[in-house]
Simulated scan of single mutants.
Amino acid sequence: MTNVEGCRQTDDVVELLKQLANANRLAIISSLLEGPRSVTELELVLSIRQPTLSQQITSLREAGIIEGHREGRHIIYSLVDERTTTVMRFLANIYPDMIPEQVRILPPFGYIDCAKLPDMIVNMRLSMQDAS
């Protein structure tokens, strides 16, 4: 509990900022700003190892920031907290490179065959290297 009298939402703000203060969680949330993503997509696009990704997704789910649902073999995550979305869009305006290019150009889940995803990621990374 906070000692700030009359500020009932202070605890909520502190919890949101704690969630955003982790680089992996920030990357996950940034990716989900562009649309729902499967765990496979998040893992490959963000280059976050599966155990770390699972831990951070659990934290975000418990905080009520994201939700997941099953579609076939895939668990699809999306942002569900409008306050987080508003804060992240604000941050993205200030820091336009906060959302990695490979996330911005990847279509939302359901528009691509996940079996082809690893090849797509490799090709995106190679084209980004060629552009630099």
Rank of each mutant, 00 (worst) to 15 (best):
G35F: 12
M124P: 05
L46E: 01
R61F: 09
I76G: 03
A27G: 08
A27S: 14
I65C: 07
I112T: 09
A23I: 04
Q55G: 03
Y111F: 15
P100V: 00
D119T: 10
I75W: 05
I76D: 01
L16G: 03
L79R: 02
Q50S: 14
V4N: 08
H74A: 11
V103N: 02
V87I: 15
P96L: 02
N123M: 08
E62S: 12
S54P: 00
M120W: 13
L126C: 09
H74M: 05
F90R: 10
R104E: 12
L117H: 03
C7F: 15
P108L: 07
N22A: 08
H69W: 10
Y77T: 06
D11A: 15
S78E: 15
V13I: 15
P51V: 03
T2M: 04
K18N: 08
L16R: 15
S127D: 07
A115P: 00
D113G: 04
I94A: 07
R83Y: 11
D97C: 05
M88E: 05
V14C: 09
L17C: 12
V103F: 05
D119N: 12
R73K: 15
P108S: 07
D97Y: 08
H74N: 12
L26H: 10
R25M: 04
L20F: 08
Y77I: 07
I66H: 04
E41I: 01
I76N: 03
I112Y: 15
I121A: 01
F90T: 09
D130H: 08
L44V: 02
L60V: 10
L46N: 04
M98L: 15
D11G: 13
R70L: 05
L46V: 00
C7P: 02
L44A: 02
T85D: 01
L106G: 00
K18Q: 11
L91M: 13
L33S: 05
L32C: 09
S47P: 00
A27F: 10
P51I: 02
R49I: 04
R73P: 08
D113W: 11
R25E: 05
S31V: 01
P51D: 07
I94D: 03
I48D: 04
P36M: 00
V45C: 04
P107C: 10
P96E: 00
P51F: 03
Y95K: 06
L60E: 03
T10E: 13
C7W: 13
E43H: 13
G35I: 10
G35Q: 10
I28V: 13
E101F: 07
S78L: 09
N22V: 11
R89C: 03
V87M: 13
I94W: 01
E5Y: 09
S78I: 00
S30D: 14
I105D: 03
L60G: 03
H69V: 09
I76E: 00
E15A: 15
Y77S: 10
V45N: 05
G6H: 09
V14K: 13
L44G: 09
L20I: 06
M88Y: 02
P118L: 06
E67S: 13
H69L: 07
I57H: 02
L44C: 01
P96Y: 02
L117K: 01
M124W: 08
M128T: 07
R89G: 04
G35K: 11
A27P: 02
E41H: 06
I76T: 03
L32P: 11
N93W: 06
S31R: 00
R73E: 14
M88R: 04
P118V: 06
D130V: 08
